[in-house]
Structures are given as structure tokens and as C-alpha cells.
Amino acid sequence: MSYFGDIYRGIKTLLTGMSVTGKYFLHSRKGAITQQYPDNRDTLKMFDRFRGEVVMPHNENNEHRCTGCQKCELACPNGSIEIIWDRQIDPESGKKKKMIDQHIYHLGMCTMCGLCIEACPTDAILWAQNFENSVYNRAYLTKVLNKPGSKLMPGVEE
């Protein structure tokens, strides 16, 4: 009879659901995802996919991978990236070449969409996982990503 069948199935599915939540309840001690933030400030590590701000990593010789191609600037829907570049003589080949002067990033206008990072052909910019981004003056939110005196890592352009 489907009437009693329904009741049986109903009870069975309810118990299945309760066993699932019951398991969660029992494991809540170990699996709690809440971070008690200011308390564990020293040990708190954000997960990899967290988007804190756009950074440009430099290696130990103060070299970065940005060629100044401006693709990130074009990709950004908010205009938060400005590339200042000029043509200089490349010391190795002796030819004139487009070189980056400043990679300016306005954190205050960034929506963390990640389009710039996807657009970059040389993976010069990445997400950082820092989250304490508040400052007392909004001028501090405008950052120059390439460090002063840095230059292009050799071999990136090939």
C-alpha cells in the first residue's frame, strides 16, 4: 500500500537527514570553521583562494615579471590599475623597448574580481592573502606594485 509506503519512506528520509546533521554535531568540536579573529591573530592563516589585494612578487635580485604590456590595465573594469611606462634603451640588445616605470594599483577602487590577474600573460601579479587592509588615509590605498629600482626578470619576454 502506498500510504504506509509513504510513511515508511518519510520516516526513513527524515532519519537520514538527522543522521547527517547528528554527525556534524558530534564533529563540531574539531571541525568548527569559526575563526576567533583578534585572539588568534598571530596564527591565523587565510586559505589560498582568499583575495586580499593584488601584489607583484619580486625575486631576491629585485626583479619582477611585468613587461608593461598594459593588459591588466585594459582588463580592469574599474580602472584601478594604471601603468606608467616609457621607451628606453634596453642595455642588452641596445634597441628601444617599452619598459614599465610604475605599476599603480588603487586598492580602494578594486572589487577583487581577479580579471587583471587572469589577463596578465606573464603571471606578474598575484593575489595576496592579507586581510587587514584598513588604513587611516585613503591615499595609502594607492600602491605602486613594482618596487623602486626593480627591473624585469630576464627571460620572461621570450
Binding site: 556534524y24 554535531f25 563540531s28 568548527a32 569559526t34 576567533q36
Partner: peptide
């Protein structure tokens, strides 16, 4: 508290 534990919160 119980609700929090069910939802893996504190």
C-alpha cells in the same frame, strides 16, 4: 550553542 554546533560554528 546547539545550533552553532550543528552548523560547525562556535
Amino acid at each position: 550553542r546547539v545550533a552553532a554546533w550543528f552548523q560547525l560554528r562556535i
